[in-house]
Amino acid sequence: MADVLRVLTGDGQKVEPGEEFGSLTLRAESDGGPAGGLVVSFFVDDPSGTGTGFHGGSPVMVTTDVHGAATTDVPLVAGDSGGTVRVLATAGTVTVEYTLEVVAGGS
């Protein structure tokens, strides 16, 4: 079981409608060290109604490696409307959040 999930890469990305976001990577830790073999679920929360989602739907489930790392391997595709998208990654009762943005109009 993980004590903490730490975002490594992917937070703060901005893409235009229809584009793919880069992979999201986190590190699961237990007692200060890596927590391998844990299943992490990545869920899309789309309060702005952008239409963003993982190809094939949510959640995307990834197992942490021996270093405690988990990286999404399914494309996260930006929807047709601009706005903020959150991706919540959970392992057991521990959660971490990524905040992403779909930038409409090339801004």
Results as ranks from 00 to 15, higher is better:
residue 58 S to F: 08
residue 44 V to W: 08
residue 22 G to T: 01
residue 15 V to W: 00
residue 77 V to L: 13
residue 36 G to Y: 01
residue 47 P to N: 10
residue 6 R to H: 08
residue 68 G to R: 03
residue 75 P to C: 09
residue 91 A to R: 00
residue 74 V to S: 05
residue 29 E to Q: 11
residue 77 V to P: 01
residue 38 L to R: 13
residue 40 V to F: 05
residue 61 M to W: 07
residue 23 S to Q: 14
residue 97 E to Q: 13
residue 45 D to F: 13
residue 35 A to L: 02
residue 32 G to P: 05
residue 102 V to Q: 13
residue 22 G to L: 05
residue 51 G to A: 07
residue 76 L to G: 15
residue 19 E to H: 06
residue 34 P to C: 08
residue 103 V to Q: 15
residue 39 V to N: 15
residue 100 L to M: 15
residue 32 G to N: 05
residue 1 M to A: 15
residue 32 G to T: 08
residue 32 G to S: 08
residue 5 L to F: 01
residue 46 D to Q: 05
residue 17 P to H: 00
residue 83 G to I: 02
residue 60 V to Q: 04
residue 13 Q to G: 00
residue 84 T to Y: 06
residue 11 D to R: 03
residue 42 F to K: 00
residue 13 Q to T: 00
residue 74 V to L: 06
residue 55 H to C: 15
residue 100 L to T: 03
residue 79 G to L: 06
residue 4 V to W: 09
residue 106 G to I: 09
residue 101 E to C: 11
residue 77 V to G: 09
residue 93 T to L: 13
residue 69 A to Y: 12
residue 13 Q to R: 02
residue 54 F to E: 05
residue 66 V to P: 08
residue 89 A to I: 00
residue 75 P to S: 07
residue 69 A to V: 10
residue 47 P to R: 12
residue 11 D to T: 04
residue 89 A to G: 04
residue 18 G to I: 03
residue 1 M to Q: 07
residue 90 T to G: 10
residue 92 G to R: 09
residue 45 D to I: 13
residue 71 T to E: 12
residue 6 R to G: 14
residue 16 E to W: 06
residue 65 D to T: 05
residue 101 E to L: 15
residue 87 V to E: 01
residue 28 A to F: 00
residue 13 Q to L: 00
residue 43 F to N: 07
residue 32 G to Y: 02
residue 46 D to N: 11
residue 9 T to G: 11
residue 45 D to G: 10
residue 27 R to L: 07
residue 73 D to A: 11
residue 98 Y to K: 15
residue 22 G to R: 06
residue 94 V to Q: 12
residue 11 D to A: 01
residue 26 L to G: 02
residue 26 L to C: 02
residue 68 G to V: 01
residue 76 L to A: 03
residue 68 G to S: 11
residue 95 T to V: 11
residue 27 R to G: 04
residue 57 G to V: 01
residue 8 L to C: 06
residue 9 T to K: 12
residue 95 T to P: 10
residue 23 S to N: 15
residue 36 G to T: 04
residue 39 V to E: 09
residue 61 M to T: 15
residue 51 G to P: 10
residue 14 K to E: 14
residue 104 A to V: 11
residue 52 T to D: 08
residue 64 T to G: 00
residue 94 V to R: 08
residue 61 M to Q: 13
residue 81 S to G: 14
residue 71 T to W: 07
residue 68 G to H: 13
residue 9 T to P: 04
residue 59 P to G: 04
residue 102 V to A: 15
residue 15 V to E: 02
residue 33 G to V: 08
residue 106 G to P: 10
residue 63 T to V: 14
residue 56 G to L: 08
residue 56 G to K: 02
residue 20 E to W: 09
residue 27 R to K: 15
residue 94 V to D: 12
residue 15 V to D: 02
residue 61 M to P: 07
residue 71 T to H: 07
residue 54 F to V: 14
residue 8 L to P: 00
residue 70 A to M: 03
residue 71 T to R: 12
residue 97 E to Y: 14
residue 26 L to M: 07
residue 75 P to T: 04
residue 45 D to V: 15
residue 99 T to N: 12
residue 72 T to R: 01
residue 33 G to L: 08
residue 91 A to P: 05
residue 101 E to P: 12
residue 85 V to N: 00
residue 89 A to Q: 04
residue 67 H to Y: 15
residue 37 G to M: 06
residue 1 M to P: 12
residue 101 E to S: 09
residue 78 A to E: 05
residue 91 A to L: 02
